[in-house]
Simulated assay, not measured.
Amino acid sequence: MSTTGRQDIEAMIARVSLGDRKAFAALYSATSAKLFGVALRVLNDRAEAEECTQEVFIRIWDAAGRYQSNGLSPMTWLITIARNRAIDRLRTRKTRPGDLGEAAEVPSAGPGPEALAIAASDRERIVACMGTLPQDRAEAIRRVYLEGETYQELADRFSMPLNTIRTWLRRGLQKLRECLTE
């Protein structure tokens, strides 16, 4: 089994920006499981995560020309697109008028073995790095980036000014990035 490296993914994105369908198919093969796992973690609904992943790849096709190699992993860019799209769907789900809410939802079967294996590969490092943050900062990061809460909801929850919450998140993410690159 071959692994696809950062340079390979960057090259695929560059070719996708030129309309190369084969490169797009290769990019999909190399990254779809990981991006699906991100969407599934945020949405906690397999069917909706599948739809979200399709939307993510449409967005990648459209936005590939705007990708800039900045020394960071191109997976960071792809995962950000997936996470943001999933959070948008989650927020839409929360604000839908006439929605019957969670009582009407059918529980999903949960992530499959492939998604679990992918998630487990990074989970230990992330958990260890989250443990280095103060508890309230770690909770704020989890609530915003995994559960889709808005900054304002966090400010209300912690009874803190909105700009303080933004600072917590920015500094917390910087500390996480430093920890994960060690």
Rank of each mutant, 00 (worst) to 15 (best):
D20H: 00
D20Q: 08
R21G: 00
R21C: 00
K22P: 00
K22D: 13
K22L: 14
A23F: 12
A23I: 05
A23D: 09
F24W: 03
F24Q: 12
F24R: 12
A25Y: 01
A26M: 01
A26V: 07
A26H: 08
L27C: 06
Y28I: 10
Y28G: 01
Y28A: 00
S29D: 12
S29I: 00
A30S: 14
T31R: 12
S32Y: 00
S32E: 11
A33E: 09
A33M: 07
K34V: 13
K34D: 14
K34M: 06
L35F: 12
L35A: 10
L35R: 03
L35M: 11
F36R: 01
G37Y: 05
V38I: 15
A39Y: 03
A39E: 06
A39T: 03
L40T: 02
L40E: 10
R41D: 04
R41P: 01
V42S: 10
V42I: 15
L43M: 06
L43H: 06
N44C: 05
D45R: 06
R46C: 01
R46A: 03
A47E: 15
A47V: 14
E48W: 02
E48Y: 04
E48A: 12
E48P: 01
A49F: 05
E50L: 15
E50T: 14
E50I: 06
E51I: 00
E51L: 10
E51T: 09
Q54S: 13
Q54M: 10
E55V: 03
E55P: 02
E55R: 13
V56W: 11
F57I: 02
I58F: 07
I58L: 15
R59N: 10
R59L: 11
R59K: 09
R59C: 13
I60M: 06
W61S: 07
D62P: 03
D62M: 11
A63W: 08
A63C: 12
A63G: 05
A63K: 14
A64E: 04
G65K: 08
G65D: 07
R66G: 04
Y67S: 06
Y67M: 09
Y67T: 03
Q68M: 10
Q68P: 06
S69N: 14
N70I: 01
G71D: 07
L72E: 10
S73H: 07
S73A: 12
P74N: 11
M75F: 09
M75N: 15
W77P: 06
W77F: 14
I79L: 07
I81E: 11
I81T: 15
I81S: 11
A82P: 02
A82S: 14
A82M: 04
A82Q: 09
R83L: 07
N84F: 10
N84T: 13
R85N: 12
R85Q: 15
R85D: 08
R85Y: 07
A86M: 09
A86I: 01
I87E: 03
I87F: 08
D88F: 04
R89I: 04
R89P: 02
R89H: 11
L90G: 01
L90C: 07
R91S: 08
R91H: 05
R91Q: 14
T92A: 08
K94Q: 07
R96W: 02
R96H: 01
P97T: 06
P97M: 09
G98H: 09
G98A: 04
G98L: 00
D99H: 09
